[in-house]
Design a protein around this nucleic acid. Structure first.
Length: 559
DNA sequence: GCCGTTTTCGGCCCGACTGTTTTCAGTCG
């Protein structure tokens, strides 16, 4: 059982306790334990086996015992007892914006509603608006929310799907029954949300491949078995397809299955794929079609075929081009680790610098820094930089809140002392497009603001971005030399590839930032790089491919 | 339920916004 599944059960326990109205601190303890397990680098089962699960922060005797039960039986008695009391459908309702534990309980207690479908019917009959504290507006929002929740439930974030696919692939490649295999489809193209996991495989014995797939621990069920296809579901509820081809067909099939549909249909229009047998690489496929190799991230039929035909494809940025991370939190605000430890981790990734960019004072919940604490933090960073003998540099920064009126949370006199200023929206998501755009444009014009953080504010599969006029903002950024962030967290990937490409076309620089709040999130950078590649970006388009001296120069600061 | 350079009990991030009310509960970040 994977860490995220144990964490998911603990979160459900917390949700059910909250619906019941249990002790808030007890609930928080379960959430904290779940969070710790979710972010754990080690396998919780192995840790438990070694008797070291109590070392995980937030896990005490009570939760440790439940984890033991869950690892053994897939559930625990406490969870089962709560489940009998609280219908599972109530937990689905919590995903609807505007519905929290109290309202879900109210709806359940008064109307006996236990599923999203029943809730929708009650909304349509106008029953929700009559409940105390609710009204027509909330009823409308619930209706919209139900539709959204249902729509997004069949897609998975790349950040979840890619590691699963990689684990599955590695497992398959270990077997002598598999000659060659590769992740294909939309995951390979680096789409931020994917429908399923596709693996292209070649081997001489389909029955042996089936046996292999059947016993992979994460396989929950198998729905279809053929000599050239195995389809089923992995245990977090994501579908997979293993497409089996003859060795001579591997590379043209890899191009075909990677897609996109529009890309491959144009690529192979009027040609017979049988003429593409026995090639040694995808490059040979493209060569035979009379064009340069096209990276998977570009295969969306958005001009890449034309560019490849005349040798004008961009030389896409690669992870090895990244020299530093410009958006990193520490335990001075809502990060988990100390600055020293974040820096050490960044060093071990081969980076030459990081910027510590904690939250500013308005973001109370995240422990936002006052001007005084920011200054104290700067002294700590100075001391750490003095210690460093390898030239690694910690830059002083801030993720400063953009206030409702378009002002910043700190005056210019504070910002001008810093190396990196990221301005981000964390409040007032529901302003209309004009106001929201003006608010961001106002800070993009500020000479001390180096970049706008997570521009649209979207949280994939949870919240759509705020209403903004992207064109106007990009124009402003171009004029005032303000960069845009690709926030590499798989929940955000914001800006996305399309906006990144638009930024590049207007000469707006991009920074690819992990937004790490703990050490192991530094490695999420790769999702940002994938997104940048989908935006046709080259190393020159990205600020954090520069050395720290050149970076500061580019931002108009003394190195 | 967890935790302790406050150590075995008593504390545990809180303020703003929304939509409902007419003084505030619930939700959210």
């Amino acid at each position: 059982m994977r860490n995220r599944e144990v964490a998911a059960i603990l979160v459900k326990i917390a949700d059910m306790m909250q619906i019941k109205g249990d002790n808030p601190y007890k609930i928080r303890a379960y959430r904290k334990a779940a969070e710790s397990i979710f972010h754990l680098d080690e396998d919780i089962a192995i840790l438990y086996g070694k008797g070291r699960v109590r070392e995980v922060p937030g896990i005490g005797d009570a939760v440790a015992a439940k984890i033991g039960e869950i690892l053994k039986t897939g559930s625990c008695e406490y969870y089962d007892r709560l489940s009998e009391e609280i219908p599972a459908g109530l937990l689905d309702m919590l995903a609807i914006p505007g519905l929290g534990h109290k309202r879900v309980k109210l709806i359940y207690d008064t109307l006996g509603i236990t599923t999203l479908d029943e809730l929708m019917q009650a909304c349509q009959r106008g029953e929700i608006r009559n409940l105390p504290g609710l009204g027509v507006r909330i009823e409308d929002n619930i209706k919209k929310g139900i539709i959204e929740v249902k729509q997004r439930s069949n897609k998975t974030r790349l950040g979840t799907a890619l590691p699963l696919a990689q684990g599955f692939l590695n497992y398959l490649l270990q077997s002598p029954a598999v000659i060659e295999a590769a992740i294909t489809g939309s995951i390979r193209r680096g789409k931020e949300m994917v429908g399923d996991i596709d693996i292209l495989l070649t081997g001489n014995d389909p029955a042996a491949v089936y046996d292999l797939v059947r016993v992979f621990p994460a396989v929950r069920q198998i729905d279809w078995v053929d000599s050239d296809l195995i389809r089923g579901e992995l245990s977090p509820g994501i579908e997979f397809e293993i497409i089996i081809v003859a060795p001579s067909d591997f590379f043209h099939s890899l191009v075909w299955t990677t897609g996109s549909k529009e890309h491959r249909e144009r690529l192979f229009a009027g040609v017979d794929r049988q003429d593409f047998k026995d090639l040694k690489s995808e490059t040979e496929v493209y060569t035979r079609l009379g064009m340069d190799y096209i990276a998977p991230e570009l295969r969306e039929n958005q001009g890449e075929i034309e560019a490849a035909s005349v040798g004008r494809l961009p030389e896409l940025i690669d992870f090895s081009d990244i020299r530093g991370d410009l958006h990193v939190h520490s335990n001075w605000s809502d990060g988990v680790e100390q600055i020293r430890d974040m820096a050490a981790a960044a060093r071990s990734l081969g980076y030459k610098y990081i910027a510590i960019t904690d939250h500013s004072k308005s973001l109370n919940i995240s422990g936002g820094l006052s001007a005084e604490r920011l200054q104290a933090q700067g002294k700590v960073i100075d001391a750490l930089n003095k210690e460093a003998t390898d030239g690694f540099r910690i830059l002083k920064g801030i993720e400063v809140d953009i206030l409702k009126n378009g002002e910043l949370d700190f005056p210019d006199s504070v910002l001008e002392e810093l190396d990196i200023v990221i301005a981000s929206v964390h409040s007032n998501f529901k302003l209309d497009a004009d106001e929201q755009t003006e608010r961001i444009i106002a800070v993009a014009k500020n000479e001390h603001v180096d970049m706008i953080g997570h521009l649209t504010g979207r949280l994939l599969s949870r919240r759509s971005g705020y209403e903004i006029d992207i064109d106007k903002i990009i124009e402003t950024c171009a004029r005032y030399n303000t960069a845009l962030e690709i926030n590499a967290h798989p929940d955000r990937l914001d800006i996305n590839g399309d906006i990144a490409r638009q930024a590049k076309e207007h000469g707006v620089k991009v920074a690819i930032n992990s937004d790490a709040h703990r050490i192991n999130q530094l490695k999420l950078m790769k999702y940002g790089v994938i997104t940048a590649r989908r935006g046709w970006l080259e190393a020159d388009d990205v600020l954090n491919t520069l050395s720290s001296d050149d970076l500061l120069k580019a931002l108009g600061k003394a190195p």
